[in-house]
């Protein structure tokens, strides 16, 4: 029964249903719980079959479905590839603009006065913002195409926390935020893809900086997960504007922004937390938020330590 292959490496229940269909029985068992392609097609299959359809008709229909699914998958891959290419093409000229800007700012082509330098600095900052947005879209496209493979290694969360702080130090100082990092030195190492963890923490800290008023507080903590001590939990806490509990799920979805007018003041594509969630999930971890409006936010995510039982994709 070659027709079964496609479903057999997907959802087992689906395969079971298909078996029943092939056996010429149980047509009516098919429902459409989700909207993803195989299930929808399966429902379409059921509806489009005349009562008492022959085995040949069914086999032909299943072949058509297989072809359609394959086409859809190829289309999805092509779309992601297109996004990747476009992002790359967009970045190249921006890189040139940033570099020329820095050359001018640093007076390499002649002295610039303070106001000129300020103008150039704004130009460079805007370009960098644009670049980081393009970066996010690119990353999203790649995550979406499931093209991302983890490259796990053992490392201390302290290092990552320090690294992400360094990346954001000037912004933290600009806003006079009180920054506190609490990382127990005795924690076991994590077994994770360091770049991804840097990205997740960088995103949370970036958001915390964005949404916390001048002279607010920003706290980062790494500890053993209370639920499972072989896992580590990172907490990023801020004294910012907070998030209505109604929106706690939504903010992790693609292109979601709680308040589009306010979000527009802050940078971002609305992809940051969606990407962070994907990265954490790739590690088998969880990411969530505890917050109410006006009382700051606490973002959490978990990662496996080297003590965790199963190791993902050993490098």
């Amino acid at each position: 029964m070659i027709e079964l292959r496609l479903y057999l490496h997907g959802d087992d229940r689906e395969a079971e249903r298909l078996r029943e269909l092939i056996a010429g029985e149980g047509f009516r068992l098919v429902d459409t719980p989700g909207s993803d392609a195989p299930k929808t097609l399966l429902a379409g299959f059921e509806e489009s079959l005349p009562a008492g359809a022959s085995r040949e008709t069914m086999a032909r229909r299943i072949e058509e479905m297989e072809r359609t699914i394959l086409e859809l998958r190829n289309l999805d891959v092509a779309k992601s590839q297109f996004l990747t290419n476009v992002s790359h093409e967009l970045r190249t000229p921006l890189t040139a603009i940033v570099t020329y800007g820095e050359v001018l700012r640093d007076g390499l082509l002649g002295e610039v006065n303070a106001r000129q330098r300020e103008a150039i600095e704004s130009m460079i900052n805007s370009c960098r913002q644009l670049l980081s947005m393009i970066e996010e879209i690119l990353m999203y496209a790649r995550t979406n195409a499931r093209a991302i493979e983890l490259q796990p290694s053992e490392f201390q969360l302290t290092d990552v926390v320090g690294h992400v702080y360094d990346m954001n130090a000037s912004l933290i100082q600009q806003k006079s935020l009180h920054y506190e990092a609490k990382v127990n030195g005795a924690l076991p190492q994590v077994w994770a893809d360091r770049d991804k963890v840097v990205h997740v923490l960088g995103n949370l800290i970036g958001n915390a900086i964005d949404f916390t008023p001048h002279a607010g507080t920003l706290r980062v903590e790494a500890r053993r997960s209370p639920e499972n001590p072989a896992w580590l939990e990172v907490v990023v806490e801020d004294s910012g504007i907070g998030i209505d509990p109604r929106h706690h799920e939504m903010i992790f979805q693609e292109f979601a922004q709680v308040d589009s007018s306010r979000a527009r003041m802050h940078h971002g594509t609305g992809l940051g937390l969606a990407i962070a969630r994907k990265f954490v999930q790739l590690h088998g971890g969880k990411i969530w938020v505890e917050s109410t409006l006006g009382s700051g936010s606490r973002f959490f995510f978990t990662l496996p330590s080297v003590e965790a039982g199963e190791r993902l994709g050993a490098a």
């Binding site: 190249t92 000229p93 890189t95 040139a96 570099t99 020329y100 820095e102 050359v103 390499l108 082509l109």
Partner: peptide
């Protein structure tokens, strides 16, 4: 390969 980036880096390096 990108001419603009090459130009920017060249200036930067030459001036440095």
């Amino acid at each position: 390969d990108n001419e603009a980036i090459r130009g920017a880096f060249s200036i930067l390096l030459e001036e440095s």
